[in-house]
Simulated assay, not measured.
Amino acid sequence: MKIGLLSGEFPPQLGGIADFTRILATELAGRGHSVRVITTQNAQAAQHFSAPYTVHPIARHWGWLDLWRMRQCTADLDIVNLQYQAAAFGAMRLPIHLAPNWVRPPLVVTFHDLRVPYLFPKAGGLRAQVLRRLAGTAAGVITTNLADAAELAAASKLQRSTTIPIGSNLQQPAACAPAQWRAAHGISEDEILLGYFGFLNTSKGGETLLRALAELCQSGMPARVVLIGGSAGASDKTDAVHTQQLLELAQSLGVGAQVLRTGFLSEADTVAALQSCNMMVQPYADGASLRRGSLLACLASGCATITTNPASRIAELQHNVNVHLVPPNEPAALAAAVRTLQADAALREKIARGASALAASFDWISIARRTEEFFGAVLGAAPQGAVRR
Rank of each mutant, 00 (worst) to 15 (best):
A345F: 05
P100D: 00
A257T: 07
G198M: 02
F374R: 01
P283T: 07
Q83S: 07
T74V: 13
S235T: 12
G229D: 04
V108S: 02
L260E: 03
E330D: 12
G125T: 13
S203R: 11
Y84S: 01
D236L: 15
M92Y: 06
A87W: 14
I367P: 06
V226L: 09
G30Q: 04
R132S: 12
L77E: 08
N42D: 15
I38W: 05
G354I: 08
T208I: 01
V108F: 01
R60V: 05
A355H: 06
S168L: 03
A177N: 08
P57W: 06
T307R: 00
D78R: 10
A147S: 09
G16I: 06
Q13E: 12
A311C: 04
A177F: 09
V141I: 08
L107E: 01
A345T: 08
A123Y: 12
A214H: 07
P52N: 13
T238V: 10
V130Y: 02
S188Q: 14
T163C: 11
R127F: 12
R353H: 13
R261F: 15
R261D: 06
N329K: 10
V109C: 01
T371I: 12
N320K: 03
N320L: 06
N322E: 12
S231F: 14
R339A: 11
D190S: 14
A257K: 05
R389S: 08
A234R: 11
A386G: 04
L216Y: 07
A297K: 08
E151K: 07
D66L: 02
R69M: 10
A337I: 06
G140Y: 03
A183E: 15
V103P: 04
L247C: 10
L274K: 13
P117R: 03
I79A: 12
L210F: 14
E248Y: 13
H48G: 03
S294A: 11
A333R: 00
R370M: 11
F199R: 05
P57D: 06
I187T: 09
R291F: 08
D344I: 04
G380E: 08
P327S: 10
G195E: 13
G186Q: 13
L107I: 03
V321T: 13
A155T: 03
A234W: 15
I58M: 09
H112W: 06
L158S: 06
V80E: 01
R339C: 09
L379H: 06
P383S: 04
A377Y: 04
S235A: 15
